[in-house]
Amino acid sequence: MTDPHEVHATDIDLSAYHDAELPAPARLRITAHIAACPLCAKRLADFAALSADFAQLPKDSLGFDLASVIAGQLPGPARSHRWTPTLGWLGLLPAGIGATVSIALGIAIGGVLFSGSAALPRETAMSVFDSIPPGGLCLGLDSCYAEYPNKTGVIK
């Protein structure tokens, strides 16, 4: 039989013993050990003194009624996230219709956009780089009405 004084109890065991969180066999073993081991008994007393000091710490108070402060900030009554299957799958019908319409609308608009841009002549698409700035402002009346026909190459 081994001498119970040979091996000291660990801090882990003493701490759990102090908190009464050890299973019965381990608790009995530690009880027997500290009865005969002054070092472990001292360590256990230190843990107990530390707990007693914690109990002496001042109780801090918020100093006002928090409930009335946050009452106005609560975003409506909390609602359960749990699904209540009163309508079964029929309950999903409005959302399904909405999703289908959205997708169809997206495809239709996308189709019009792509087909529209493909049909435009290259010159039209690049018109923003013309010498006449966007907005159709003329550089001058003369250039509009006198020289423009010549620039087009039309022979009068």
């Binding site: 801090d60 918020l62 009624d65 409930a67 609560l74 909390a78 609602r79 359960s80």
Partner: peptide, 23 residues
């Protein structure tokens, strides 16, 4: 009660635990 939307019940919980949580 608070889970069902009772604000007064929630206020009671706040009052009971506000100092502990603050500490």
């Amino acid at each position: 009660s608070a889970r069902a939307g009772d604000l007064r019940a929630f206020a009671g919980l706040v009052r009971r635990h506000q100092d502990r949580m603050f500490g």
